[in-house]
Structure formats: structure tokens, C-alpha cells
């Protein structure tokens, strides 16, 4: 369950292929400062993939869809995954208030942004 009491928004991360992390919100939207961190899980070493998935699972526990209100900053995490039923890939996203975000998520966002 997440902080909001909802079920975890994450799919089976074994099926995840891409992750996109952005820091959003704040008193203005400044496009030059809104760069996202993209992670191609398929291209990651097994250890890196395991570490990243662990960060995602820890972060998802703090999912709060209303966390951006009043100019508060938050992290938005999008995960692209392949459903096990063979249908087209899907994307789920969740949000974590900046003050609730695990330090590991912040570090993941700061790594090699582009």
C-alpha cells in the first residue's frame, strides 16, 4: 500500500522496460530546468536493474497524486512495461512529494540526466 492508502501503482517490474523520472511542480514551470532522467532497464546490468527496481518499489510506497498542490515540488515516475497477456506496452506513473522522496530516488534522478 502507498502513503495514500492505495494499492501500489507499480506493475511487475520484471516486465518493465523503461523508466522516466522528472522533478515537477514548484512556483513556475521552467522548461530548461525540467529535464528528465530516462533509464533503459533493458540495457542495464542485472545489478543496476535490481537496484533501480528496489528504489522504485520503495518510492511507490509514498505515492500521493495530490502532492503538487500549492507550488510544492514532487517527483513523477513513469514506468513503461509489457503486460503478461501480450498486449501493447503500457505506462503507469506515480508521484512522490519532494519531502517524502527517498534519497535514493533523488540520486537516481540526478544521475546522468539528459
Amino acid at each position: 500500500m502507498s502513503a495514500s492508502g492505495r494499492p501500489s501503482p507499480l506493475p511487475d517490474l520484471g516486465q518493465a522496460s523503461l523508466v522516466r523520472i522528472t522533478r515537477e511542480g514548484g512556483i513556475a514551470y521552467l522548461p530548461g530546468l525540467a529535464r528528465a532522467r530516462h533509464i533503459d532497464l533493458a540495457a542495464c546490468a542485472i545489478e543496476d536493474r535490481a537496484r533501480i527496481c528496489q528504489v522504485l518499489q520503495r518510492s511507490a510506497a509514498f505515492d500521493d497524486p495530490r502532492c503538487g498542490e500549492g507550488d510544492r515540488r514532487y517527483f513523477r515516475v513513469e514506468v513503461v512495461y509489457q503486460p503478461t497477456d501480450g498486449s501493447d506496452s503500457r505506462t503507469v506513473d506515480f508521484r512522490i512529494a519532494e519531502e517524502d522522496a527517498p534519497e535514493a530516488l533523488r540520486q537516481l534522478w540526478e544521475e546522468d540526466r539528459g
Binding site: 522528472t22 515537477e24 511542480g25 514548484g26 512556483i27 513556475a28 514551470y29 521552467l30 522548461p31 530548461g32 530546468l33 525540467a34 503538487g68 506513473d93
Partner: peptide
């Protein structure tokens, strides 16, 4: 500005920005 980018705010409904970012463009 090269660092900030360009101010994305529209001044008219014909330029309304549809986006998932920024809570659906609340500051845009």
C-alpha cells in the same frame, strides 16, 4: 534563456497547452 528555456505561457485559448507535466500545465 539557454538555461531556463523559453517562457511557455500562452496568452490565448487557441494556444492552450495540453500536457501531463506541471499537473496538466497549471503554471503554463
Amino acid at each position: 534563456d539557454p538555461v531556463l528555456g523559453k517562457d511557455p505561457q500562452p496568452a490565448h485559448m487557441r494556444d492552450f497547452v495540453i500536457t501531463e507535466a506541471d499537473n496538466g500545465g497549471v503554471h503554463i
